[in-house]
Amino acid sequence: MEAMQHEHTHTDTCFDCAETCERCVTALLEMGEEDSKGHDLTACIKLCRDCADICTLCGRLEARGSQFMKSYMTVCAEACEACAAECEKHADHVAHCKACAEACRKCAEECRAMAA
């Protein structure tokens, strides 16, 4: 049986963003309450956790063709933008935050385009 080709979709973008947020949270928790520059990481951790959950649900709603997916994409874009803004504060000295901010910006952009 031949393997089916999988084209990258918006659902994949949502799940990729959720995974990146989860990895960022894990890295931040391992660092402790402050980064190397003394910045409090609590807000970043909270936003990453929210964003991961919201992105996962957004991807699931889209995968099933839910009637609520377009309105939920707007919420997902807002969460991604907030998470990206917070992670960008640490992106110059925390690699996971840089990757997270980039994934969040991409997901927010796709969600906004899909919800339009």
Rank of each mutant, 00 (worst) to 15 (best):
E19Y: 13
E19G: 15
C21W: 10
E22R: 15
E22T: 15
E22S: 15
E22Q: 15
E22A: 15
R23I: 02
C24V: 10
C24N: 14
C24I: 06
V25H: 13
V25K: 12
V25S: 14
A27V: 14
A27N: 13
A27K: 12
L28C: 15
L28T: 15
E30V: 11
E30Y: 11
M31K: 10
M31S: 05
G32T: 10
E33G: 15
E33H: 12
E34H: 13
E34M: 11
D35E: 10
D35R: 11
S36D: 14
S36M: 13
K37L: 14
K37H: 13
K37V: 09
G38Q: 12
H39C: 11
D40M: 07
D40R: 05
D40N: 14
L41S: 07
T42A: 14
T42Q: 12
C44G: 02
C44L: 08
I45T: 12
I45C: 03
K46N: 11
K46I: 08
C48S: 06
C48A: 08
C48M: 01
C48T: 00
R49Y: 03
R49G: 04
R49A: 11
D50Q: 11
C51R: 02
C51W: 00
A52Q: 00
D53K: 08
D53Q: 12
D53P: 00
I54E: 00
C55L: 01
C55R: 00
C55W: 01
L57I: 09
C58P: 00
C58Q: 03
G59M: 07
G59C: 05
G59T: 05
G59L: 04
G59V: 05
R60D: 02
R60E: 06
L61I: 03
L61R: 02
L61F: 01
L61S: 00
E62P: 00
E62W: 02
A63H: 04
R64D: 06
R64C: 04
S66F: 10
S66W: 07
S66L: 08
Q67Y: 04
Q67A: 12
F68H: 09
M69Q: 04
M69H: 09
K70I: 02
K70N: 05
K70M: 06
K70W: 04
S71N: 06
Y72T: 06
Y72A: 06
Y72H: 12
M73E: 12
T74E: 07
V75G: 02
C76G: 05
A77K: 03
A77R: 03
A77E: 05
E78K: 10
E78W: 02
E78C: 02
C80L: 03
A82L: 10
C83I: 03
C83K: 01
A84G: 06
A84Q: 06
A84K: 04
A85N: 04
E86Q: 13
E86V: 06
E86Y: 05
C87G: 09
C87Q: 07
C87M: 09
E88M: 14
H90N: 06
H90Q: 06
A91T: 04
A91S: 14
A91Q: 06
H93R: 08
H93G: 09
V94L: 11
V94Q: 09
A95D: 14
A95G: 03
A95C: 03
A95T: 10
A95Y: 00
H96R: 04
H96W: 07
H96Y: 04
C97P: 10
C97W: 02
